[in-house]
Amino acid sequence: EMEYEEITLERGNSGLGFSIAGGTDNPHIGDDPSIFITKIIPGGAAAQDGRLRVNDSILFVNEVDVREVTHSAAVEALKEAGSIVRLYVMRRKP
């Protein structure tokens, strides 16, 4: 069973403070093209906020749908998102 969360982060000097993997051209798990959080960087915006978790998958960055995009398109969406970034994420319920 999945749960969904909308997380708004303010981009810090060091960016959003997380790493991603995945994409249609580089699936992270099997042939699932989802964009997954692979690392939360200590002291970064995501770590300070505390809600984003490793293995969360990002569905939307602001209004941009990143469910079926290449890795570089997801990176671009995050880069272009401005200083306030709304992430709509999905994760397995614990």
Rank of each mutant, 00 (worst) to 15 (best):
K39W: 08
E6V: 02
E80M: 10
L78N: 01
A21R: 04
Y4A: 02
R92E: 10
V85L: 12
L87Y: 01
S19R: 15
A47Y: 14
A73H: 12
L9G: 00
K93C: 06
P27Q: 09
A77Y: 05
I58V: 08
V89G: 01
E80S: 15
V69Y: 15
D56I: 00
I20S: 06
I29G: 12
V54C: 07
I20N: 01
G50Y: 04
R51S: 14
I84R: 06
I40L: 07
D65W: 03
A45H: 15
V61L: 09
F36L: 12
A73F: 05
A74M: 09
S57F: 07
T8P: 03
Q48C: 12
V69H: 15
K39C: 06
T24S: 08
S72P: 08
R92Y: 15
E68T: 09
E10W: 05
A81S: 08
E1Q: 00
V75K: 05
I37A: 10
I35R: 00
R11Q: 12
A81L: 08
G82F: 02
A74E: 00
I29Y: 13
L9E: 00
M2S: 02
P94I: 03
T24W: 11
V69F: 14
D32S: 09
S83W: 11
L87R: 00
L9A: 03
V61P: 00
V61R: 00
N26H: 10
K93D: 10
V75I: 14
I35A: 08
G23R: 10
T38W: 04
E3I: 14
V66H: 02
V61T: 08
D49H: 04
L87F: 01
V54G: 13
M90E: 14
V85M: 09
A45F: 10
R51C: 13
A77T: 02
H28M: 11
G50N: 07
G23A: 12
L59A: 14
A81T: 05
L59Q: 11
R51D: 06
K93E: 06
N62G: 09
L16P: 04
L87C: 02
E5T: 14
D31N: 07
S19E: 05
V85H: 03
G12V: 08
A81M: 07
Q48K: 09
I40H: 00
R67G: 14
G44K: 07
I20G: 00
L87N: 00
K79V: 01
F60M: 11
Y88F: 01
A45I: 02
D65G: 14
R11I: 12
L16Q: 04
R92S: 14
P42H: 10
V61F: 14
I41F: 07
T24M: 09
R11V: 06
I20V: 07
D32L: 08
G50V: 10
S14T: 12
A74R: 00
Q48N: 12
M90T: 14
I29P: 08
P42I: 15
G15P: 04
E3S: 09
R92A: 09
A45T: 06
I29E: 12
N13V: 06
G22I: 03
V61C: 06
Q48P: 13
I35L: 11
I35M: 11
A73G: 09
G50S: 13
E1Y: 03
S72K: 11
M90D: 14
P94N: 13
D31M: 05
A81F: 05
I41W: 11
L9I: 15
R92K: 14
G22N: 04
E63C: 11
E68W: 04
N62Y: 02
E80R: 10
V66T: 05
M90L: 02
H28P: 14
F18S: 00
E5N: 15
S83L: 04
F36T: 10
S57W: 03
R86Y: 05
S57N: 12
D49Y: 03
A47C: 11
P94S: 03
L87H: 00
G22Q: 14
R86Q: 06
D49R: 04
R92V: 07
G44N: 03
A77V: 07
A46I: 10
G44W: 12
F36Y: 07
R86A: 08
L87S: 00
A45M: 14
I7G: 00
E68Y: 04
E1F: 01
T24P: 14
G82K: 03
L9Y: 12
G30D: 08
I29N: 13
N55K: 11
Y88H: 06
I29K: 09
D65F: 05
A73C: 10
D65S: 13
E63I: 09
M90S: 06
G30N: 14
N62E: 10
R86G: 10
L52Y: 01
S14K: 06
G43K: 10
V85C: 13
S72Q: 12
D32E: 05
D32T: 13
S72E: 03
P42D: 14
G43R: 13
D25Q: 05
V75E: 09
G12K: 08
A81I: 14
E10V: 06
P33D: 12
E5W: 05
D56V: 01
A77E: 09
A77S: 11
V89A: 12
N62R: 03
A81Y: 06
R91T: 03
D32Y: 09
D31W: 04
G23E: 03
N13G: 11
P27Y: 04
R53L: 02
P33V: 07
P42T: 13
T70K: 15
D49K: 14
G12Y: 14
K39M: 05
R51N: 03
S57A: 13
N13E: 10
K79N: 01
T8K: 05
I41H: 08
I35W: 02
P33A: 11
A21F: 10
V69E: 15
D31S: 06
G44H: 05
K79Y: 01
T70D: 04
P27W: 03
A47F: 08
T70A: 09
K39E: 03
